[in-house]
Simulated assay, not measured.
Amino acid sequence: MADFRRGYGAAPWHLLLLLGCFAVTGWIVLRLSGEPAAVRMLLWFLGAVIAHDLVLFPVYALADRTLRAGAGRRGTPSALNHVRLPALAAGLLLLVYLPSILGLGDGTYTAATGLTPRPLLARWLAVSGGLFAVSAALYALRRWRHR
């Protein structure tokens, strides 16, 4: 077992999990291969990978490095995760609602819900602000308890 771990670099369950993920991905690719929009989905996926790896990853890696540099001394509660978590949640919500916020698919949204997507930007900002406010309050509580 130690030889396997040394040669592979991780535990055997990691390899089994990875093979399972590849099997599920292969099954999805086979299911989508007959779809007329498969080429568009592939282009969208490749564009998302390129946008993430070449644009977004360097941006948030730099932001994380900056936060770590200013995280403070050891022994005191760090604000790092109190910024990371609401930023991640706000980013994911933006990713989900960005097309509607930009007005793409207004007709589809209105037909499906009977509502206009106009208030989505204000709601996203309110939810994001609330997430950061709760996180800041928890950080203040942690700092207060540490003293």
Results as ranks from 00 to 15, higher is better:
residue 104 L to Y: 15
residue 100 S to P: 05
residue 111 A to C: 10
residue 101 I to D: 00
residue 114 G to I: 08
residue 93 L to D: 00
residue 76 T to L: 15
residue 112 A to H: 08
residue 111 A to M: 08
residue 110 T to S: 15
residue 115 L to Y: 13
residue 100 S to K: 10
residue 76 T to M: 14
residue 96 V to Y: 05
residue 93 L to E: 02
residue 112 A to G: 11
residue 86 P to I: 00
residue 105 G to T: 07
residue 82 H to R: 02
residue 96 V to P: 02
residue 89 A to R: 04
residue 90 A to E: 01
residue 71 A to S: 14
residue 95 L to F: 15
residue 68 R to P: 03
residue 73 R to C: 10
residue 103 G to A: 07
residue 113 T to Y: 11
residue 77 P to Q: 06
residue 80 L to D: 00
residue 82 H to E: 00
residue 76 T to C: 14
residue 112 A to P: 01
residue 77 P to C: 06
residue 102 L to H: 11
residue 78 S to Y: 01
residue 70 G to S: 09
residue 72 G to Y: 02
residue 71 A to R: 04
residue 78 S to D: 06
residue 103 G to I: 13
residue 81 N to R: 10
residue 99 P to E: 06
residue 84 R to H: 14
residue 78 S to E: 07
residue 87 A to Y: 04
residue 96 V to Q: 06
residue 108 T to R: 15
residue 78 S to P: 02
residue 100 S to Q: 14
residue 114 G to A: 07
residue 83 V to M: 03
residue 89 A to C: 14
residue 83 V to P: 01
residue 108 T to Q: 15
residue 85 L to H: 03
residue 84 R to W: 11
residue 76 T to Y: 09
residue 88 L to I: 14
residue 107 G to H: 01
residue 93 L to V: 04
residue 106 D to I: 13
residue 71 A to D: 10
residue 108 T to E: 15
residue 103 G to F: 07
